[in-house]
Structure formats: structure tokens, C-alpha cells
Nucleic acid binder design. Structure first.
Length: 717
DNA sequence: AGCACGCCGACT
DNA sequence: GTCGGCGTGCTC
């Protein structure tokens, strides 16, 4: 006896509001015969005294509410989500103590743009006959019809819309609006063979393990390879295998702008199957790329952390390139980590994850299956790294650094100099009264940007004209302290720069539109120096760079943070990887006030394994990740005392047997708002997250009354 | 978050 | 008498 399949009668909908106070799902009655509503559908529903957008998160046969209290959806809209993203959003809401609506909001494209249409002309049969000689045509009209006959439908504006309208009136031409996809063009950078390269033995064995994982329906891999060991080719061939199997792939990169070579290689190899998402796309381009993925026209999505939400329904593989990069963490609610989300999405779909890097995070080493690429594809050795002790130094450049740079200048070579601090001087102080110029909104000193004539706050963006006198005592004597990339660029240019030896600078002050050009000009120059912040240590290859210099390498170490060592190690190692990818004589100089620091010594010795081993041992003792989870709760308000008060309130509500609560601790003021935080450290991740989430929800009403914003940060960076 | 309801004071 | 201030409460 066959069962009669009843169509679902109830849709459970999560309304897309951003507040914690409204959390669904809410039940809506589906009228009999209502087709096309499924999990993931985007619907317009009556909600309270208005109507709102919502996402169907579940279908059910019945509701707990009486029928008369149920409303019906008003409309089903285009642009719904694949089913697995709905499950992922619900997981994210729990995992990051956020709401389903906020998580769903990250996954949907902006609603403010629609499809773009363009007026297109094509020739009619009557038009073809006219062209063959029947009827009078002016020379211009004949040319227009000729063009349509030979090249087919054409954008009307390219020929002249008024002329075509006249021909349309005579029935010789058909004009209609056609959907036009907006796609931005990415600059091609580096060589990009369209055919697969032959693999080294190590690459082949890594690929084989990934493919075996896919075969089993999963696999979580750490592709640990030194710079130049050919990780990208392994990604490409794994993606090709996934496509062959009829599934789709996502490739996450830290920043598209800094990894043009990877994008170029994927586009060269896979052509229009690739959709590239990034922050520089216009809303329209993003909308259309999203649609190409949703409709299955594109089957590989390359993009930054948000690309982990690519609307693909059967993802077989997620690649996370440069997995150590902190930009995978989203720094506003929901504060998700794209690497963690990638693992969860893969778990939901039975797909493989490949995280690639030269400097794995300790937690990745502990939780993923490691595949190693020990050798560079060109078999060149890594450059020699020398640590230079700057204690007691008077000049910002060590004598050995100056010597190396002048040698380089003489030999017309290329160097990269990394200084992780932008601007000219990091602070100004009055020589008479000692007062330091501070940001009015944040508790930090203003940084001098000399060429643009202002002092600026690097936290909130506040800027003001360079003061001529001390605002406190009126003294004209202002001292500039410290040196940033702007000053370094100036000094290197004075010392070495000139015809045939340009000095380039790359940092966050360089307009985004000029980053690619700066990289290209440095790449093309036969000699010169590239000065910059950590941006210069990312993604791009310059095979002819023979000298790398890190200034103030312990700068990242001075942050009171358990990841400080890891960050410093990665920065030095990444820069070392940039130098001498094509030359055996390359070297790297590391200037530091902490030459004995474990992370700097290990990085200089290219000793990744030794560093990771000691780092993991250290973290185990302190129950830091991966041996424990951290949850940070952040409070901020204009009222100076309110955040700390609310933090104490939360701390009192938390009763966690297996956790340590650190704080409440006040934080420095940011954007005019006082802040405070609590950090929960626990070996029991899920219960700790649940307890913090519940306590924050209890507090939500009091917080909004006191105008204090509360934000939960699971796995803070 | 919106949005309406409701209970108070200041205007034509 | 009505217009409109924003506290309170609800949204299938």
C-alpha cells in the first residue's frame, strides 16, 4: 500500500531582521497547491504590522499554533539559498552566539540591485530581404543592417539606438531587452599555463591522498609546503578532479588584490567555470556572479572569506589558501572564522577541505591530516636568514643592512623591506610639556602622515592637520618619534633611489586601485626596492628578489596575545619565502630587539616543525587552542562606566564548572566608545558556547536599555 | 529592528 | 479639543 505524500502545509520562516530580540522560526501556512517553496526559499511574509523578507528554514506538516493565527507568505522571490547553507546558518548562529537571521544575511546577495538588461538589436526576415535589394535604405541604414546580418544580435547603443528605432518601425529590426551579466575583468599576472603541469613526486602523492579522501566522502588536509613548492598546482588538479566528478569547488584566498597570480591561474585553467567574488566588485557584478553560481553556470568560486558561503549545492572540495592568515576571521557579528565554517560546510556535504600554507597554525597541525611539500618545484634552497641584534643601535638600519642595500644598489638587484608600521612617525610629543597628540575618539596616539599633511588615528580614521604648536602649552617644538613605512621609503629613496633604482611603497595608505599597479611596476623593474607593511609578504612572487629585510621583527611580538609568537614566526618565514625564489644567492636580514626570541630563532633556521612543536607544548600547558577554547565577550558604549558594569553582570550570571573566566577587564576606548571584555577559557567547547550564548541573550534587554552593545567572539584572533 | 498603541504635555 | 513626545510590547 503506497503512502500518499502530503505536501507540506507549514513553512517555518526566519525573518531577516538583525536584532537578537526577534528569533524565529515563525510558522506560515502554505495554501494548497503552492509550489516552489522549499528549504532555502526567499519569501516575503507579513510580519507584525508590516511585511518583511525571510528565509524558509524548514517545512512541516503542522504547527503548534491554531490555524487562525497563521498567515501565508505573500510571495516567493528569486535568489533563495541552497539547502545546505540554511543548515550552515543555523549552526553558525549557535557556534558564534549570534542569530540565524544574521548568519543568513551574510549568505544572501544585496537585495538592492537586480538583473541588468541591455537593449539588443537583431535583424528580422524583412530586414534581410530589404538588405537583398527590396526597398530603399540610406547608406547608414544599410551599414547597420549589414552589421546585424553578419555578427548577429548586437548591443543597440553600439550602432545607434535612434537609427535602429526607425528601422524597428519599418519592421526590419527587432529590439529587445536582454539580460546582461556584469563581470569584472581581472588583470592577468604571472605565467598561467592552460594545461595541467606535471607534478613532482611530493605533489603527486599529496594529490593522491586528497583524491582518496574525496573518494571516501571527505577528508581534512593541511597542505604544508614551503613557498614555491607548488601548492597552487595541487589545488588546481584537485579542483579539476572534483569538477570531473560533477561536483563544485570553493577556493578561499586571504585577499584577491594580493593574490592576483592565483586568480589568473584558475581563470586561465578553468575559464568561465570560475566565478570570482571580492570586495571591489560593484553590487551589480556581485549579484550576477552570485547568480552564475546559483544557476550552476559557474562551478568554482574563488574569493575571500565570504566565498565560503558561495551558493553552490554540491560542493566537493573547499580549498583554504594561506590558511594561517588572520583575515579569515570576520570581525563583526557573527564573528565567524571562515576556516572553521569551511570545515562545517564540508562536514554537512561530505566534501574535502585542503588548507594550504608554508606556516601552519598550531591548531591546524593538531586537527588536520598533514600532507608535506618539502621541496620547491625549482629545487632551489631557501635563502639564508641572519638575525641582527638592534639593542643599543642608534640608526634605524643595522650596519649590515646598510651594507647589503648598498651592495644591492651597486649590483642593480631587487629587495623587499618589511616594516609593519605605516605612516611617518608613530607619535608626536611636545618637547616642552611632554604631551602626546592623542586621538579624540580612541585612547591611542595619532600617527604622522607627512606627505599628506595630517596626523591620523589608525583605529577610527580620524585625521587632523599637523599641529604647528602644542595645543596644551603652545610650544612650537614638537618631537617626532619612531619611523614608519612612509619615512623609510623617503630615506631609502634619498640614499639609493633614482634613475634605474626606484623605491616603491605598499601599505594600507596606498589606494586599493593602485596596489596591483605598484606590484606590477616593482615586478617589471630590473632593480629597486619595495618597502611596505605585511602586505609585501603576501601572495605574489618576484623571482628576481635577492634580498629580504624585516625591520623591528619583534613589533608583532609586543602585543600581549598568545598568538603573538605564531604571527611573528609567520611574518618572518613568509618574507623569507618571497626572497630568492629563483636565485641561490638570496638572503634575508631580520632586525630585532629580541634576537633570542624562540619564534625569531626558529624562523631564521627555517625550523617550522621545531616551532610548532614548542608552540603546541606551550599551549597545552596553558590550555590555549587547540587544547581549550576561548570565548571573548565584548561590551561597548558611549557611557564610560556602562560596559564594565554590564561585563560584571554577565560574569555573575556565568556558572561554568569547567571554565576559567578572565576579567572583566577594561579595554582602551575606541571610536568614542568605552569598552570592556570578559574571556572564558574552557576545555568543553560546546557547553561553554551554549552557556555564554544563553547568558548574553538573558542580558540582551538590559544591554539595549543601557545602550551597551554586546558582541561574542568565539575563537578570537 | 520596525511599527503601533497608549498615555502624557503644548499648541491652534 | 488634537498633535506628537517616546516608553512598552509584539511579530507566525
Amino acid at each position: 500500500v503506497g503512502q500518499v505524500v502530503q505536501p507540506a502545509a507549514i513553512a517555518r520562516v526566519e525573518p531577516l531582521t538583525s536584532t537578537r530580540a526577534v528569533q524565529g522560526p515563525f510558522d506560515y501556512r502554505l495554501p494548497a497547491g503552492q509550489d516552489g517553496i522549499e528549504v532555502g526559499s526567499l519569501v516575503r511574509v507579513p510580519f507584525g504590522h508590516r511585511s518583511t523578507l525571510g528565509v524558509v528554514v524548514d517545512l512541516a506538516d503542522s504547527s503548534e499554533l491554531p490555524d487562525e493565527r497563521l498567515a501565508e507568505p505573500e510571495a516567493v522571490l528569486d535568489g533563495g539559498l541552497p539547502r545546505d547553507l540554511v543548515a550552515l546558518a543555523r549552526w553558525m548562529a549557535r557556534e558564534y552566539c549570534s542569530t540565524p537571521a544574521r548568519a543568513l544575511g551574510l549568505m544572501l546577495p544585496s537585495r538592492r540591485v537586480g538583473a541588468k538588461t541591455v537593449l539588443t538589436a537583431s535583424i528580422t526576415d524583412a530586414g534581410a530581404r530589404a538588405l537583398a535589394g527590396e526597398g530603399a535604405l540610406t547608406p547608414n541604414q544599410r551599414a547597420a543592417l549589414d552589421r546585424l546580418a553578419s555578427q548577429g544580435p548586437t548591443v543597440a547603443a553600439a550602432i545607434g539606438t535612434p537609427r535602429l528605432r526607425r528601422l524597428e518601425g519599418r519592421g526590419l529590426v527587432r529590439l529587445e531587452h536582454q539580460r546582461q551579466l556584469r563581470r569584472s575583468v581581472h588583470p592577468r599576472v604571472g605565467s598561467a599555463p592552460a594545461q595541467p603541469l606535471s607534478l613532482t613526486r611530493e605533489q603527486a602523492s599529496a594529490l593522491a591522498e586528497i583524491l582518496a579522501g574525496l573518494e571516501r566522502g571527505g577528508g581534512r588536509f593541511l597542505l604544508h609546503g614551503v613557498t614555491g613548492s607548488g601548492k597552487t598546482e595541487v589545488y588546481l588538479q584537485a579542483v579539476e578532479a572534483v569538477l570531473q566528478a560533477g561536483r563544485q569547488a570553493i577556493v578561499l584566498v586571504p585577499e584577491i588584490g594580493l593574490t592576483p597570480q592565483l586568480v589568473t591561474r584558475f581563470e586561465a585553467r578553468l575559464g568561465p567555470l570560475v566565478a570570482v567574488l571580492h570586495s571591489k566588485l560593484s553590487a551589480g557584478e556581485r549579484h550576477d556572479e552570485w547568480g552564475r553560481l546559483r544557476r550552476g553556470e559557474a562551478r568554482v568560486c574563488v574569493g575571500p572569506r565570504s566565498a565560503v558561503f558561495a551558493p553552490l549545492s554540491d560542493v566537493g572540495l573547499i580549498v583554504v589558501d594561506e590558511e594561517h592568515d588572520s583575515s579569515y576571521k570576520h570581525e563583526s557579528d557573527p564573528r565567524y572564522d571562515a576556516r572553521t565554517v569551511a570545515l562545517e560546510r564540508a562536514r554537512l556535504l561530505g566534501s574535502a577541505v585542503v588548507c594550504g600554507t608554508a606556516t601552519p597554525r598550531p591548531e591546524s597541525l593538531a586537527t588536520l591530516h598533514r600532507l608535506r611539500l618539502r621541496e620547491r618545484v625549482d629545487a632551489r634552497p631557501l635563502p639564508a636568514v641572519k638575525v641582527l641584534d638592534m639593542r643599543g643601535a642608534h640608526h634605524p638600519l643595522h650596519p649590515e643592512t646598510r651594507l647589503a642595500l648598498s651592495d644591492l644598489h651597486r649590483q642593480q638587484g631587487k629587495a623587499i623591506v618589511l616594516l609593519n608600521r605605516r605612516g611617518w612617525s608613530n607619535f608626536l610629543s611636545c618637547r616642552a610639556c611632554g604631551q602626546v597628540r592623542m586621538c579624540p575618539n580612541c585612547d591611542v596616539a595619532l600617527v604622522l602622515h607627512r606627505s599628506r599633511g595630517f596626523v591620523a588615528c589608525h583605529h577610527c580614521g580620524h585625521r587632523e592637520a599637523v599641529p604647528e604648536h602644542c595645543p596644551a602649552c603652545g610650544s612650537p617644538a614638537l618631537a617626532r618619534h619612531g619611523a614608519g613605512t612612509e619615512r623609510l621609503e623617503h630615506e631609502l629613496d634619498q640614499a639609493l633611489g633614482g634613475e634605474g633604482f626606484p623605491v616603491f611603497r605598499l601599505d594600507a595608505d596606498v589606494a586599493a586601485s593602485r596596489v596591483a599597479g605598484t606590484l606590477a611596476r616593482f615586478g617589471a623593474a630590473p632593480a629597486g626596492v619595495l618597502v611596505g607593511t605585511q602586505m609585501v609578504a603576501k601572495g605574489h612572487d618576484f623571482p628576481d628578489v635577492t634580498l629580504g629585510v624585516v625591520l623591528d621583527a619583534d613589533q608583532t611580538l609586543r602585543f600581549p596575545d598568545f598568538r603573538a609568537e605564531e604571527r611573528t614566526f609567520a611574518l618572518v618565514t613568509q618574507l623569507a619565502g618571497r626572497a630568492g625564489r629563483g636565485d641561490a644567492g638570496a638572503r634575508v636580514l631580520v632586525q630585532t630587539l629580541a634576537p633570542e626570541a624562540r619564534c625569531i630563532r626558529r624562523a631564521a633556521a627555517h625550523d617550522v616543525d621545531g616551532f610548532l612543536e614548542s608552540e603546541l607544548a606551550h599551549r597545552q600547558i596553558l590550555s590555549y587552542p587547540p587544547y581549550g577554547s576561548l570565548i571573548r565577550v565584548l561590551f561597548a558604549a558611549a557611557d564610560p562606566g556602562a560596559p564594565l558594569e554590564l561585563a560584571h553582570d554577565l560574569a555573575r550570571r556565568l556558572s561554568l564548572p569547567d571554565a576559567t573566566v578572565l576579567g572583566p577587564a577594561p579595554l582602551f576606548r575606541l571610536r568614542g566608545r568605552s569598552r570592556a571584555q570578559i574571556v572564558v577559557k574552557s576545555g568543553q567547547r560546546a557547553p561553554a558556547i551554549a552557556a555564554v550564548g544563553a547568558a548574553v541573550n538573558e542580558l540582551a534587554v538590559a544591554a539595549s536599555k543601557a545602550k551597551v552593545s554586546v558582541s561574542v567572539d568565539v575563537d578570537p584572533q
